[in-house]
Design a protein around this nucleic acid. Structure first.
Lengths: 210, 210
DNA sequence: TAAATAGTGTAACAATTGTTACTGTAAGAA
DNA sequence: TTCTTACAGTAACAATTGTTACACTATTTA
């Protein structure tokens, strides 16, 4: 575990803290598509991502979904922190988008390390800052962009986090993430295909030059 | 200043911290409609709101605006904290929506007090948590609601933060906040008037039962 | 007071997005 | 193999939102 941890967090945490983390934390591997947090859950530990990507979703009262952002290597779930600290329920759903390796830190350590290690403090605040910026990006997309622009952005982001130009998603799944409808997504994807930006196949999309 | 501070923050900060705040901070009164932070600004102190309301706005590349949320008594600007800590530029614009009283804390104290006072630490994390929830609400509104629902929600929120049922806004100003157009807002407001929910007047709206 | 400006009302139309319905076909199950 | 289901393509239409244009009036300015 120490090696994995050092690879992803060695540049920001000193050895003493890394040792503490290894002692207190649990290493986990999560398969693709696993629901890690459900809305309303109480969360008792905080994840440090080693590899992979986790999709963070919001849901409204009718069960409609919207992709907020992805967590990646070096990230932690700020919402989880916030929930843990305040002992509140989760406001979001988390699903592994790829196979994911992570380290689960029990929440009690959070506060202890904040007073003890400046590097941990910096990490926590940096995380909040990053997550707020991700949320601002989400707001920007939904508020200021048309569906075709949002779709393009979605595909780019998906290619980036999965590190492959083959997107294994059905149009329906994409529609859920964007909170749109299958027909709309199919229509816009077809337009992108005609522009030579991608190739459509059954259950997957090969991107060319987005 | 101590009295003002105690009224708004006395229940969460111990006397020792309150004293430190009074020593380090500056009291300010801001008139209505004053631009307090511009996008791209570097911020060097952190506001603690005593009274009034501050509007937090997001802007896209074309200059289109969107109201994110209001800060009120007992709130602090988490974005400002994040900016200060990371020495980053502001991602948002802040404009006083009413006359506002606040206390400005120099950013150096932030980190000192975080290690020294649990109450301050709790306050900081609580603030982050609150702000993230406000952003989630904004995402929900923009992603899941129609314009008529968003308008209604906007009016309710405006009534709440200004504590009066007379909304002194032109349709154009409302359109800016919602990132819509004047004609659309006029149309929907007219519909609400016909439903008996409000009275339309030149440059102001009297709400009846939203 | 006259002229200019700002705020609103409204119609007509355009663009975007969502919905319904039906088709064809690939993949998997019986 | 045949049957069933899942996925995608597309047309036709509906709903929502945005745009343009113009009229009317209150308020402000000259």
């Amino acid at each position: 575990m120490m090696q994995e941890l050092k690879n992803s967090y060695g540049h920001i945490f000193e050895d003493e803290l890394l040792n503490e983390i290894v002692k207190a934390a649990v290493y986990k591997e999560i398969p693709e598509g696993h629901k890690m947090i459900e809305i309303g859950d109480y969360v008792k530990s905080m994840p440090l991502l080693i590899s992979g990507a986790i999709k963070i979703l919001r849901e409204d009262t009718d069960g409609d979904e919207l992709l907020l952002y992805y967590l990646e290597k070096g990230d932690t779930c700020t919402m989880t922190m916030a929930c843990c600290m305040g002992n509140k329920k989760s406001e979001i759903r988390a699903i592994s988008e790829t196979k994911t390796k992570l380290i689960m830190v029990p929440i009690e350590k959070m506060e202890i390390w904040i007073t003890k290690y400046k590097s941990w403090r910096d990490f926590v605040f940096e995380s909040y800052h990053n997550r707020i910026n991700e949320l601002l990006n989400t707001v920007d997309s939904v508020a200021f962009l048309n569906m075709d622009q949002r779709l393009l952005q979605y595909l780019k982001e998906k290619v980036r986090v999965t590190n492959t130009n083959i997107i294994k998603k059905t149009h329906q799944e994409i529609a859920y993430d964007l909170h749109s409808s299958r027909v709309v997504v199919s229509r816009l994807l077809k337009k992108l295909e005609k522009l030579g930006k991608l190739e459509l196949h059954r259950s997957h999309i090969k991107t060319i030059n987005l």
